[in-house]
Amino acid sequence: MSGKEKKLDLPKIPEGLTALDVPDYEWADEHEISDSIIEDCGIHNQSAYKPCFDRVVFQNVVFRGTSLRKAEFTDVRFVNCDLSNIDLSEVILHRVSFHNCKLLGMDITGSTLRNVWFEQCYADYAVLRFTNAKGVKFEKTSLAKADLSNMTIAQFYMKEANIDQAQFSQTKLGGVDISSCEFNAIGAGLEDLRRCIISPAQAITFAAHFGLVVDDGTN
């Protein structure tokens, strides 16, 4: 559910982070990276199970063919990164922000999100199904054709997001304000949309979606 927007807890990033040279770094299962900045590089064809990232900044990093399943990210910021098609299924994101990132096809199925902010990102075709999300905001972010089905949500905010053809089946949107969002159609049933906040123009779109006829009084 959602109501009046509550302020998210943003990543707590200390000063004086240590620069980490990724090409010389050996990725390993259950390894921890903390108090570091990783920038201006590519992370390609890497796989690690249950790695832990604490107080880390990723800036201008391109991920390719990367899998970080069941990873834990706490106080992490991604800036100008490309995480397209990354496998982040069953991860834990706590106080994490994504700014101007490319997240096309990113898979975070079955994950836990707490205080996560997506700002000016491209997350078309992203997969968030079966995700437990509390304190999550999509701001000026594209989620066209993304899969947000079967999510459990609270304090869930969407501001000026593109959700055209996004799938919300079995995700209860009661109290969620999508009135500033852009879409021609979304995948959701009547029960999913009950008490969802929409604009008058969107009401006409939904009426057509459910086969209703709106009488404007001119006939």
Results as ranks from 00 to 15, higher is better:
Ser47Trp: 15
Phe168Leu: 04
Gln155Trp: 05
Ile38Tyr: 01
Leu212Gln: 09
Asp107Lys: 12
Ser111Val: 09
Asn162Arg: 03
Phe206Val: 05
Ala71Phe: 04
Thr109Phe: 13
Val79Lys: 09
Asn100Phe: 12
Phe73Ile: 08
Asn184Ile: 07
Ile43Trp: 02
Thr18Asn: 13
His99Leu: 14
Asp87Val: 08
Asn115Gly: 06
Asp107Ile: 12
Gln59Asp: 11
Asp21Gly: 03
Glu5Arg: 15
Asp147Glu: 12
Arg55Gly: 11
Thr131Gln: 02
Asp192Cys: 01
Cys196Trp: 06
Phe73Gln: 04
Ile186Met: 00
Asn150Pro: 01
Gly217His: 08
Ile204Leu: 09
Asp177Leu: 03
Ile86Gln: 03
Ala48Phe: 04
Ser97Phe: 01
Val79Cys: 00
Ile37Arg: 07
Cys121Asp: 09
Tyr25Ala: 02
Asp107Val: 14
Leu128Tyr: 08
Cys41Gln: 11
Thr66Glu: 06
Glu119Asn: 11
Gly3Asp: 10
Tyr49Asn: 10
Phe183Tyr: 15
Phe138Val: 04
Met151Arg: 04
Glu182Asn: 13
Ser36Cys: 15
Asp54Thr: 12
Lys50Ser: 10
Val79Thr: 13
Ala161Glu: 01
Ile197Glu: 02
Ala19Pro: 09
Ala146Pro: 00
Leu104Met: 11
Glu72Ile: 12
Cys101His: 02
Asn80Ser: 15
Asp192Glu: 15
Tyr25Asn: 01
Phe156Lys: 01
Ile92Tyr: 08
Leu17Arg: 03
Lys7Val: 13
Leu68Pro: 03
Lys159His: 11
Val76Tyr: 04
Thr131Asp: 00
Phe130Leu: 08
Gly16Glu: 10
Ala133Phe: 11
His94Lys: 15
Leu212Cys: 09
Ser97Asn: 11
Ile108Arg: 00
Val91Arg: 04
Gln202Gly: 09
Glu5Ser: 07
Glu26Phe: 08
Glu160Asn: 15
Glu182Ser: 14
Pro51Asn: 07
Met106Gly: 05
Asp35Trp: 13
Thr109Met: 07
Gln202Trp: 06
Lys159Ala: 01
Asp87His: 06
Phe168Val: 04
Asn80Pro: 05
Lys159Leu: 11
Leu93Gln: 03
Leu128Ala: 09
Val76Met: 05
Gly135Tyr: 06
Ile43Gln: 00
Glu30Asn: 12
Asn60Cys: 02
Gln46Thr: 14
Val56Trp: 01
His44Lys: 14
Arg64Glu: 08
Ile197Ala: 01
Cys121His: 02
